[in-house]
Amino acid sequence: MKLQLWRNATLLLNIDGISILVDPMLGEKGSLGKFPMVDNELLNPLVDLPFSKEELNQKLEKIDAVAVTHLHPDHWDTAAIELLDKNIPIICSDVISEQITEQGFTNVIVVNNKLHWRNTEISITKGQHGTGEIGEKMGIVNGFVFKADNKSVYIAGDSIWYDEIAKEIDKHQPQHIIVAGGAATFSVGDPIIMTSEDIIKVCDYAPESTVWVTHLETVSHCKEDRNFIQKKIIEKGYENQCFILKDGEEVNLK
């Protein structure tokens, strides 16, 4: 398995020669505009993709499938809808499948629990995108576990740390866990994705797993940057277990 972070939550996962693009946000810097209920005027995304439009098109031609955890625009934007081949397999939950079909995609693969697709076992997982009223407004979110050739990676998606994350780790025993960090927070309410404290809890709970941190320095409501989280990781002694991906960085999932 290989993993490349493009930007935010957009990941390219290569499993035994098959390429799966996760949560594509493909628009240019600033294309999403200002987010509601934030205490700044920044335009999202804050950064461009780490390669040119020509390189992006070349990469998209080699994609075998797309996996979508939820439909917030920093995970599934207008550019992705326009640029992706409408016949490409789209892997998602039944909660969002109808809307994706209405957007013109003809090969939507719904994962209700788990399925086998091209020698890969794909399981859908639960998430909690915040707490209280904000959490309810954020709606249902999911993650995925991909298993092939005795290797496994759990993409937790946009979720805080809560009991269900621990249950998913117990159930799937993933070798690799990918979490959304940054402590994204609106002008009211608590964080809607993992804080550095949450990330440490993942490391505590899954000492045999390698933890990878994404969703950083790309959207305007994130409160913790790479440097801040790295300091917390080092303070707790997890620098050999927990790694922060840079935009464009590619790693082997051993």
Rank of each mutant, 00 (worst) to 15 (best):
V145C: 13
D190K: 11
A184S: 14
K171A: 08
R118N: 15
A184I: 00
R7Y: 04
K231H: 12
D204N: 14
R7E: 08
A183W: 00
I160H: 03
G17H: 06
Q128F: 02
T214S: 09
L42V: 04
V153R: 03
A184R: 01
I229D: 02
L32N: 07
K59G: 05
V213P: 03
L56P: 01
A183I: 02
L43M: 15
F35T: 03
I193S: 05
V213A: 06
P191V: 04
V66P: 03
D16R: 08
L3Y: 01
K137S: 15
V202Y: 00
V202A: 02
I233R: 02
G127K: 01
I234K: 10
E136F: 05
L253F: 05
V213G: 05
H75V: 14
L46V: 08
I233D: 04
E136N: 08
D149M: 09
N252W: 08
S187D: 15
E197Q: 13
M25A: 15
H176A: 13
I244T: 08
F51R: 07
H75P: 01
G248W: 01
I234Y: 06
M138T: 11
I244Q: 08
I155F: 13
Y205S: 12
A156Y: 00
Q99K: 15
I200S: 06
T185L: 03
S93P: 08
L115Y: 05
I165N: 00
V68L: 07
E55G: 04
N8D: 12
F105V: 07
Q4D: 03
Q230S: 11
K151G: 05
T210D: 13
F243K: 15
A206V: 02
D64C: 04
H215C: 15
G104A: 02
I169F: 01
F35A: 11
E54C: 10
E224M: 06
G139N: 09
D74G: 12
E82T: 08
M138K: 10
L5W: 00
S187A: 14
N40G: 09
S19A: 09
Y162L: 06
N142C: 10
P24F: 00
P89Q: 07
K62L: 15
E133A: 12
